[in-house]
């Protein structure tokens, strides 16, 4: 009965909820309920992030997706004529169901067949030892230290833990500086663009 057990249980339950919620989102006739289902899925995905040691991303997911995006979508829903029975199927429903399930199986096949450079799939003991034995820790001055771990038999601790907001921040302004600026540019242009669109509407 290790911590791993709880994590696994949580993972399976939450995955199940995610898939269930996703199905509800795409099948619900009531769009508002669909939107609420969507925010439920977002929260569950955030829990998955917490399980994956990505606390920062999980919190951002809640902050942006649940706090802003799904609220905005719920907002947009109120502009639909008949919310309760508004979400209709197109004529490609069956075809698309077939396409999507086919794509799903192709993706699963590929993910199973590909040899990921994964912690689980590394068979060379030496390589694994070289990796497993170290973990990353923030020092007091803020830089990242590499420490040799003494006991790392626990399954939970397997993996690369460079798990800090600080290192996400430092990679954002070093290796991903240009993407970051592009994102900023996209955000500002989206802001201006949506304002322009709304303004046109108000002029009429």
């Amino acid at each position: 009965m290790s911590g791993n057990f709880f994590i696994d249980i949580t993972f399976w339950v939450v995955s199940f909820l995610i898939i269930l919620g996703s199905f509800y989102v795409v099948t619900a006739r009531n769009i508002f309920r669909g939107a609420i289902g969507l925010s439920f899925v977002f929260i569950c995905v955030a829990i998955i992030f917490f399980l994956l040691n990505a606390e920062f991303l999980g919190v951002v997911q809640i902050l942006v997706y649940v706090g802003a995006v799904s609220v905005l979508i719920a907002f947009a829903v109120m502009f639909i004529k008949d919310v309760v029975d508004g979400s209709k199927y197109s004529k490609y429903r069956l075809l698309s169901a077939f396409l999507c399930s086919f794509l799903f199986f192709v993706l699963i096949f590929i993910s199973q067949v590909t040899e990921w450079n994964s912690m689980d799939s590394i068979e060379n003991e030496d390589a694994l030892a070289g990796l497993e034995g170290f973990y990353f820790e923030e020092s007091e001055s803020g830089s990242i230290l590499i420490k040799k771990a003494e006991v790392l038999s626990d399954g939970v601790n397997k993996g690369v833990f460079i798990n800090s907001t600080l290192s996400i921040g430092s990679s954002l302004i070093s290796n991903f500086l240009i993407p970051l600026q592009v994102i900023g540019f996209i955000l500002i242009s989206a802001l201006i663009g949506s304002l322009t669109i709304i303004r046109q509407r108000r002029k009429q």
């Binding site: 609420i36 925010s39 606390e55 951002v60 649940v66 706090g67 609220v71």
Partner: peptide, 20 residues
Amino acid sequence: NVGLLFILAVTSLSGLAVVI
């Protein structure tokens, strides 16, 4: 370790509740 951000995130949930 993301406590402050967590507070911001969680309080933003109340917006959803108000909409609902």
